[in-house]
Design a protein around this nucleic acid. Structure first.
Lengths: 191, 191
DNA sequence: CGTCGGTCTTGACGGTGTAAAGATCCCGGT
DNA sequence: ACCGGGATCTTTACACCGTCAAGACCGACG
């Protein structure tokens, strides 16, 4: 079960399909990545993917899990920086937005409710979501205490900040906003 | 060119297709509304739509224009209410979000960059967009002056508020957020 | 009354997702 | 050593989709 392709049996088809699908996703929107094209790029027949992922949704969901990992990793890098809590919050937001700007289709996939249903996420994805929520709440809490405010509004402010950051990211990813408009908006938000 | 369907010539096919498409959009995501199903529901052959809309994208774009009209109308109703500028801002946001919650597929269509490109919007849509931006800026400006602040941050704060409201709407429409989480978040935002 | 142009239908093509059946190969038990 | 079972991959087939080309139909205008 190694990497050698012995002709008939591929050896590592699952990974190859995931990579081909991810590559395709960088070029086209999730709705446009087709099972058959992914199989074509992986050099196998169009029905081969069915053994590893139940159907098209399964493949896209698995790709979405990988994208979610990248997405979280970028946010953690940004939030790991030292500095003023307000700057950290802005950095987290800019990381969120920059992912959506640079990989709009991956971003769209991660939040596609049909492909990646937020209810009962995959076992691989659930911890990433939890970690992301913790990261957000932690940054907001640090910002609150740095401003001498209590934590009674933590939840409301966390979802508000998530909303703001997610909205800016979506608008940039959809081409409604220029990327240069994001930083001023974020700075205005954290006062 | 009236409403009678004389058997062969429909008489008002364009409107009928728009209505059938809009109805289908209430049930399914934009990616899943098919030209053929719309034609089926309108009682015509599968190629009939091509005379009125160039292709599938044309039909979806026209439906999207209508949805944008509904969307703007709802925001204007909300912002027309009297009261504290902060409350007006919250009301505008809740109208924005409630549209996304009640008609998630219409909301998704309006902001779909492939179907409804934000660059060179249709002549029917452009004034709606402009009106919407004015409405937002006006509400934010009133809120700013009510709080005794100058208007130097108007643009940044307008896009920040747009982002927040759009993000909350998207997250609710995608099922990531419960609708009951929105109002507290909005109130926390306007302080 | 004829014919002309717009409206709608029919039929075809290539692409898609999916299911069923067949081919091929690896692996474990004898 | 071998051979049989099960996993992997291919082939074939079907229904649906968007799109195009050709034809049928009808209203309107000469």
């Amino acid at each position: 079960m190694s990497r050698s392709s012995t002709g008939y049996h591929h050896g590592d088809l699952r990974r190859a399909l995931l990579e081909a699908g991810a590559a395709l996703l960088e070029e086209q929107a999730p709705a446009r990545v087709s099972l058959r094209e992914v199989a074509r790029r992986a050099g196998v027949s169009h029905a081969a993917p069915y053994h590893h992922f139940g159907d098209r949704g399964g493949l896209l969901k698995a790709i979405g899990d990988a994208c979610m990992g990248d997405f979280l990793a970028r946010q953690e890098d940004a939030a790991a920086a030292e500095g003023d809590p307000a700057d950290r919050l802005v950095a987290l937001g800019e990381a969120y937005v920059s992912f959506a700007a640079e990989r709009p289709h991956a971003f769209a996939l991660v939040f596609d409710p049909e492909l990646c249903p937020p209810q009962d996420p995959s076992p691989e994805r659930a911890p990433l979501i939890a970690r992301n929520e913790d990261l957000l709440a932690e940054c907001v809490a640090a910002w609150l205490t740095a401003r001498g405010r209590g934590l009674e509004d933590l939840e409301a402010l966390s979802t508000a900040f998530w909303g703001a950051v997610h909205g800016l990211a979506a608008l940039v990813g959809e081409g409604q906003l220029g990327r240069e408009q994001v930083a001023p908006a974020l700075r205005a938000l954290v006062r």
